[in-house]
Design a protein around this nucleic acid. Sequence first.
RNA 1: GCUGCCUUAGCUCAGCCGGUAGAGCAUCUGCCUUGUAAGCAGAGGGUCGUCAGUUCGAUUCUGACAGGCAGCUCCA
Length: 659
Amino acid sequence: MVEKLAPKKRKAVLGVEVDKKSYDLSRPLSTIKSPSAVEAKVPSAVEAKVPSAVEAKVPSAVEVKLLTFDDEAGKEIFWHSSAHALAQALKRLYPKIQLEDGPVVKNGPGYFFYDVLLDEKINEDAFEKIEAEIQKVVRENHPIHRKVMERKDAVQKFKAMGEDLKVGIIERLPADAEISIYEQGEFADLCRGPHVPSTGKLGVFKLTTVAGAYIGGNAENQMLQRIYAVSFPDKQMLKEHFRLLEEAKKRDHRRLGQELELFTTSEDIGPGLILWLPRGNIIKEELETWAKDTEAAHGYERVTTPIVTKEKLFYTSEHLPHYTESMFPPMQMDNENYYIKPMNCPFHHTIFGHRPRSYRELPLRLAEYGTCHRYEDSGALMGLMRVRAMQMNDAHIYSTEEQAVEEFKAVIRLHEYYYKILDIKDYHMVLSLRNPESKKYHGEDAMWKKAEALTRQAMEESGVEFIVENDGAAFYGPKMDFQIKSSIGREFTSSTCQLDLFMPMKFDLKYVDKDGSLKRPVCIHRSPLGTHERFVGFLIEHFAGAFPTWLSPEQVRILPVNEVHEAYAKNLADELRKEKIRVHVELPEESLGKRIRSAEKMKVPYMLVVGDKEVEANIINARNYFTGAQKEFSQDEFLKMIQEEIRLKKITAMVKKQQ
RNA sequence: GCUGCCUUAGCUCAGCCGGUAGAGCAUCUGCCUUGUAAGCAGAGGGUCGUCAGUUCGAUUCUGACAGGCAGCUCCA
């Protein structure tokens, strides 16, 4: 069983950091390839019993920081070594096991995992046994040694151990790579490190799940078993971790969607097909109205196009046969194949091209709430976040090449506006470029160069922070994505924009320029609110179900204390309804306490209890859900206050404790 | 699609070794006439995801399928 762990264990020194790079404690700094550290020697104090993270200066002005579990880098070392301890335990229990790789992960069902190859299926029944063996490894307190090896020696060593997968990894390493192995007791692993000084520095472990993962992340390859786990310096931290996970689950949109009666699905209808319930539909339509108004104010024009089309359209766009597997299969009518549309762009291109266009019309911004259907892999479906029928906040902007950067920048500003109103701060942006090696991308090199340069210019001039990915572009153009996180930390693309020079060419789109010459427009695909399925799913978690009043399905709930107050309550409700406030009267068929509880559970922004006092003085007593504060108003004051709150799309920070 | 796991009332979940099921909440009906998070009592509600197989007998064991969960792959 788990031995008693010293509470100070989290303060254990796990490694060192030099010039922002982490290393093992055991590794002499003189071996570290860091220009400023070459001359440095590890101060002997490093090995000493330093009780907490301190900064130690060594003579050459190199900053050496001791890492503990409180440091991000310290955590990483801790979990990385934890993965080794897991592997060591697995190897003891399953001698035939082959190890692949065991990295630290930020977002996942654990903090680290180990990928293994084993005929026998490891399932949750085995977890306890494995955990016990890991704790044994910890208790045995093996010192961890780093060893640099020649490539052929390393190959020989792992071959002898029967670790063919490791041999494969070594062989794939670049020729100049330093090959290091880490040894602890009878166990040795190919690894770059760094690691903790000994297994005794590790704490308590809990395996979380086992899943499949392809070797090298390639679906054509064999599937390994991926064993996820978490570890912490002490039991309390482990417990706290699982408590926080439970908290996060309460925000899960699938759970809140049911509790708040926002949406549902049905086996009879099909996976990934959402039924919006009246309450959820209000949220979706409020967003829609907002987006339509906003887009109208930004010069967008609305169009409507059909859900089905002849297959020719998708051959022109080259989505077929590229995406055949992700489309609902075709239906035959009049000797033609018709497809349900997976996207709106080819329709908009067709609209653009239906008559000659003048440069005077550009930029032309065609917007549509088009419902698209994609046959997503069954394993990829997830609540509202990944569905097969989706309503897109779509638009395509056709502009001259000279206008493209400005238009793209305007799209970025539009995103910033939406995100600001909704108080979305936790997101990051990605610029996805083409990998010239890959055959996935269509079009000429010059076209790609230009499209990528224009996109980058727009993003840079907008001053936004972004990371660059070198193989994530759409097949027709570079992509700018807004990435958001779900309550459990999984990442999703909330919005994607592309600057496209390819489709205008495919659809032979042109406009007449000032000088009478025919030119190709640039097309910008954009969808700031993404699909409303995913976006509402995200908002449910973002607001933990407590939607700001303007979005809330029910804005006011009136609770008459008893029958004599019903008339006043109903009259009040009528007055508010006339002003388009979403209000519901909960008649005294249940006790007041129960009705109050129910209003709270449904997270209704304003709860109005109406009793003798209110009727006599003709006033309103409103409790604000977000703050928990109760306040008296005249009917006029209340109406003005709530209308203003709705008009401003105000977000009131949650003050009261959620139950 | 792949790997593993899960599926019992509208919801959350009990149900040891095979002998046709239970709780809380919700719903309905009474009583109560309520002042800021659950008043009391009673009732209804389940072909135990579906279809096969094993068995005298399957919610329980086996298989297939469906739906869901986690991960991988994919994501116009």
